[in-house]
């Protein structure tokens, strides 16, 4: 009997926009072979502005999750798309991330990463693939839980900047703080990180995931995977 895959894409900015159409194309193609039911939920409280067009592709102005979900639904009729036009908050997190989900986290702040990682720690089965970048480099972390055990480590482990974030999630910011946010980003770095996230997804899906984090540097032309496995006793 065909299975079902529930995917959440949290953050539809530079990385999320790069990732979404390729993820959808792959899953639609796979669905034709497996009959697997695929539902993709896009989550973002931000609105697309024309000045984002250098790195982000939207066909109209409006909430990013809604606009992108509509575009994808037209392009990939075999899949189901849903939009949640909200930022992640403590109040909505348990509704956004549920047991068995596969979560692509493409946000630009550590506060949201910590919140989502902690939510995943509560679940018995979940896959969280989180990507972020600076100007020409970035990283992808893959947190897998199966059978109530960590297969790889949460985003906060070995990352004090995420465990104790100095930033705020967009939902916590005032308009003045949001106005100070945003900095030049490079489309190619967004693409590189999105690609690394999709590669990790493919490796996991095909049962060949051998790393828990991968670093990408587009100037150096390098990617460096590293293991992030729990040590004896860490799951107890």
């Amino acid at each position: 009997m065909p299975g079902r895959i529930d995917i959440k894409l949290i953050g539809v900015g530079g990385i999320g926009c790069a990732l979404a159409p390729f993820l959808a194309r792959y899953l639609q193609s796979e669905r034709q072979l497996t009959g697997e039911e695929v539902r993709i939920t896009l989550v973002d409280g931000d609105a697309f502005e024309s000045k984002n067009a250098a790195r982000q592709s939207f066909e109209s102005i409006g909430n990013k999750a809604k606009v992108k979900a509509s575009e994808l639904a037209l392009g990939f009729p075999g899949l189901s798309f849903r939009a949640i036009p909200e930022f992640v908050t403590a109040a909505n997190l348990s509704d956004l991330v549920k047991p068995g989900d596969l979560v692509f986290l493409a946000v630009d702040n550590h506060a949201t990463r910590r919140a989502v990682s902690r939510r995943c720690e509560e679940l018995s089965e979940v896959v969280l693939i989180s990507g972020g970048n600076d100007f020409t480099d970035g990283n992808v972390q893959i947190y897998v839980r199966q059978g109530d055990r960590d297969i790889t480590l949460p985003l906060t482990r070995f990352h004090p900047e995420i465990a104790d974030p100095k930033d705020k999630s967009p939902a916590e910011m005032s308009c003045e703080e949001l106005a100070q946010e945003g900095a030049p980003q490079l489309l190619f770095t967004n693409l590189g990180v999105a690609c690394a996230m999709l590669n990790a997804f493919y490796a996991w899906r095909s049962g060949r995931l051998r790393y828990g984090e991968v670093y990408v540097d587009i100037v150096e032309g390098r990617a460096q995977p590293v293991a992030r496995a729990p040590r004896d006793g860490e799951n107890d």
Partner: peptide, 12 residues
């Protein structure tokens, strides 16, 4: 390994 900080926002 010195664990490099996670990418955050595009700025150096």
């Amino acid at each position: 390994e010195f664990v490099r900080l996670a990418g955050e926002k595009g700025y150096v």
